[in-house]
Each structure stands twice: as C-alpha cells, then as structure tokens.
Deep mutational scan, measured.
Amino acid sequence: EEKRQVKQVAKEKLLEQSPNSKVQVRRVQKQGNTIRVELELRTNGKKENYTVEVERQGNTWTVKRITRT
C-alpha cells in the first residue's frame, strides 16, 4: 500500500515538471523511511531516467530529491 502511494507521489511530481510526458515506474526500493523510486520519463520519444527519493513525514509523503540518472 505505501509503495503504491509513493509511486503515485513520484509520478505526479515528475509530471508537474513536464506535463505532456509519459512516466513509467521501473523500480521501488525501501531504505528506512525513505523510498527510492526509479522512473522512466518519455517526452516525444526521448527517454530520460530519474530517481525520486520520497520520505515519510507524519502521514504524508514528501519528495526529498529528484536525480536524473
């Protein structure tokens, strides 16, 4: 359940930055209360990979860091 929520948060964050792209989740890793989500962003056939680190704060998820990989 929490992985599902985190995927959603990570996707939304990337789509905010580039709204007309397609996002696909590649991998989800958990480390303590930080969850790392690896995503693939496609814009006009151009692929970019991103890693989004999401942290739990109380009962909400906040995006800590977005890295292009």
Rank of each mutant, 00 (worst) to 15 (best):
53 E>T: 09
38 E>A: 09
28 V>C: 06
66 I>Q: 01
59 N>L: 09
48 E>T: 09
21 S>A: 13
31 Q>M: 15
40 E>K: 05
2 E>C: 08
50 Y>E: 00
67 T>M: 12
8 Q>R: 11
53 E>G: 02
59 N>H: 08
24 Q>W: 15
33 N>V: 06
57 Q>K: 10
8 Q>D: 09
49 N>T: 14
30 K>P: 10
67 T>G: 04
57 Q>E: 14
36 R>E: 07
50 Y>F: 10
35 I>H: 13
18 S>T: 06
8 Q>Y: 03
57 Q>Y: 13
18 S>G: 02
69 T>M: 13
58 G>Y: 05
63 V>D: 00
45 G>R: 06
42 R>Q: 10
28 V>L: 12
53 E>I: 14
20 N>M: 08
52 V>Q: 00
36 R>H: 13
62 T>S: 10
27 R>Y: 10
52 V>D: 00
19 P>S: 03
45 G>T: 07
25 V>N: 01
3 K>T: 15
7 K>H: 07
10 A>G: 03
66 I>G: 00
62 T>Q: 12
48 E>A: 08
55 E>V: 13
16 E>F: 03
9 V>S: 02
9 V>R: 04
47 K>A: 09
53 E>R: 03
39 L>T: 02
48 E>N: 04
23 V>M: 04
25 V>L: 04
37 V>R: 00
59 N>M: 12
57 Q>L: 12
45 G>N: 08
31 Q>S: 13
10 A>V: 10
17 Q>G: 09
23 V>A: 09
43 T>E: 10
27 R>P: 01
53 E>H: 07
48 E>H: 06
46 K>W: 10
6 V>Y: 05
41 L>N: 01
28 V>A: 05
10 A>S: 03
26 R>N: 07
61 W>M: 05
28 V>D: 01
47 K>S: 11
26 R>C: 08
63 V>F: 03
14 L>V: 08
33 N>I: 06
31 Q>D: 12
1 E>V: 06
7 K>Y: 11
50 Y>R: 00
35 I>L: 09
36 R>I: 15
6 V>N: 01
6 V>L: 07
13 K>G: 08
24 Q>D: 07
2 E>Q: 11
50 Y>P: 00
57 Q>T: 13
40 E>I: 13
36 R>K: 14
67 T>Q: 08
50 Y>K: 00
44 N>S: 10
49 N>G: 09
20 N>C: 07
57 Q>F: 12
8 Q>I: 10
51 T>M: 12
7 K>S: 15
67 T>A: 07
54 V>S: 01
54 V>R: 00
46 K>V: 12
45 G>Q: 07
11 K>P: 01
13 K>Y: 13
45 G>V: 04
20 N>P: 02
12 E>G: 06
38 E>I: 13
6 V>G: 06
31 Q>I: 15
8 Q>V: 06
9 V>C: 05
14 L>R: 02
4 R>M: 11
14 L>F: 04
2 E>R: 05
26 R>P: 00
56 R>I: 06
8 Q>M: 08
51 T>F: 09
28 V>W: 10
54 V>M: 11
22 K>R: 11
54 V>L: 12
5 Q>R: 14
41 L>R: 03
47 K>H: 12
14 L>H: 01
40 E>V: 14
15 L>N: 02
49 N>I: 14
68 R>S: 05
42 R>P: 00
49 N>S: 11
48 E>V: 08
53 E>W: 14
13 K>M: 09
40 E>D: 04
30 K>G: 13
42 R>F: 15
17 Q>T: 11
37 V>D: 00
8 Q>A: 11
29 Q>D: 10
29 Q>R: 14
10 A>Q: 01
4 R>S: 10
17 Q>E: 06
30 K>F: 15
30 K>E: 10
54 V>H: 00
5 Q>H: 10
17 Q>K: 10
43 T>G: 08
26 R>H: 08
43 T>H: 12
52 V>E: 00
25 V>R: 01
50 Y>I: 05
16 E>T: 06
53 E>D: 10
62 T>A: 13
36 R>D: 02
48 E>D: 06
36 R>F: 15
46 K>Q: 11
33 N>W: 06
33 N>L: 09
46 K>M: 11
68 R>Q: 10
26 R>V: 14
14 L>A: 05
17 Q>M: 15
66 I>M: 06
29 Q>L: 14
11 K>S: 10
65 R>S: 15
53 E>N: 03
46 K>A: 09
7 K>L: 15
58 G>T: 03
50 Y>C: 03
21 S>K: 02
27 R>D: 05
29 Q>C: 11
65 R>D: 07
62 T>C: 06
49 N>W: 14
23 V>Q: 01
32 G>H: 05
60 T>V: 13
25 V>A: 04
64 K>P: 02
2 E>M: 08
42 R>I: 15
39 L>H: 00
67 T>L: 13
13 K>S: 08
10 A>L: 08
60 T>F: 12
9 V>Q: 05
36 R>T: 12
12 E>I: 08
43 T>P: 01
28 V>P: 00
63 V>R: 00
8 Q>C: 07
47 K>D: 04
13 K>T: 10
39 L>W: 01
50 Y>D: 00
23 V>L: 04
12 E>S: 10
2 E>H: 07
12 E>H: 07
45 G>I: 04
14 L>K: 02
47 K>G: 04
42 R>G: 04
52 V>H: 00
21 S>E: 01
22 K>Y: 13
9 V>P: 01
24 Q>E: 10
1 E>S: 08
44 N>L: 11
20 N>E: 07
49 N>Q: 12
19 P>H: 04
2 E>A: 08
42 R>E: 13
2 E>N: 06
53 E>S: 06
39 L>M: 09
35 I>F: 15
59 N>C: 05
62 T>M: 12
63 V>T: 02
67 T>P: 00
32 G>L: 04
21 S>R: 02
10 A>W: 02
59 N>F: 07
66 I>T: 03
18 S>F: 15
20 N>T: 08
59 N>T: 10
48 E>G: 03
